[in-house]
Design a binder for these strands. Structure first.
Length: 235
RNA sequence: GGCGUCGAA
């Protein structure tokens, strides 16, 4: 069973869902892990409908989804933006009566936000007893990507107040939000803060956001200034 | 053996 399962997972991880499906069909015993590996494969390929189909079949065959299954099916909801599917999975989670883990709640936050329901995303986030770095980053990225920079920056301040230090991923979202809103001073401020207060080295993503922000504001001299140190070694 | 955030593939 483990060898066949490993085979399914290897194909699924490579995105070869045709081969994965064949290997999956040839198994006589299918446990929750192997069903979930298939769902995960479809979800990562953006084949949300297939993921959902397997999720339903799995339960029909008497296998109960566990935490990992929920994470994978929620990834599928996110990737195709299927709000109805997201709500259905949310119901399944409530029905299971288990307390939401921070991982599953975070996946729900992401799924609702990708389906365009920020109110539901925020509500699930608020109901969490404890917010960790990843859950903060998820909410922050959601607001930044929706272009709600005010909510995003608010979220960023709140996370610090509640004692979670932002990381490089957090700052990508913050700079994205500033860039989206054309907030030059704020963008420069947060870029500085990242290095000075948190000692986080800037990545290409951070530079890209900031250059975009400065460029669209017509501040080309600032762009040159910013890139001078970076470009020097390339000359 | 399947496993939550930006990005990447």
């Amino acid at each position: 069973v483990f060898i066949g399962s490993t085979l399914v997972d290897v194909y699924a991880k490579c995105g070869n869902m045709l081969e994965a499906h064949q290997a999956f069909q040839s198994l006589q015993e299918r446990d929750v892990v192997i069903w979930t590996a298939m769902i995960s494969g479809y979800a990562r390929q953006g084949q949300g409908e297939m993921a959902l189909e397997l999720y339903v079949q799995m339960q029909q065959s008497g296998i109960k989804p566990d935490n990992a299954t929920f994470l994978c099916i929620l990834r599928a909801c996110s990737s195709i933006g299927a709000l109805g599917m997201c709500i259905m999975v949310h119901h399944d989670l409530s029905r299971s009566r288990a307390k939401l883990s921070v991982e599953v709640a975070t996946a729900l936050v992401r799924a609702y936000s990708k389906c365009g329901n920020m109110a539901a995303a925020q509500q699930i986030f608020d109901a969490l007893p404890h917010h960790d770095l990843v859950s903060w980053n998820t909410l922050l990225a959601a607001y930044a990507q929706q272009g709600d920079c005010q909510a995003g920056l608010c979220c960023f301040e709140q996370m610090q107040q509640e004692g979670t230090n932002p990381d490089a991923v957090s700052f990508v979202s913050v700079l994205t939000a500033c860039s989206h809103a054309g907030m030059v001073d704020e963008g420069l401020y947060y870029f500085e803060l990242m290095h000075r207060k948190y000692g986080i080295p800037a990545t290409v993503q951070h530079y890209t956001s900031l250059v975009d922000l400065l460029g669209r504001a017509g501040l080309l001299h600032k762009v040159e200034e910013l890139l001078a140190d970076v470009a020097m070694p390339l000359d």
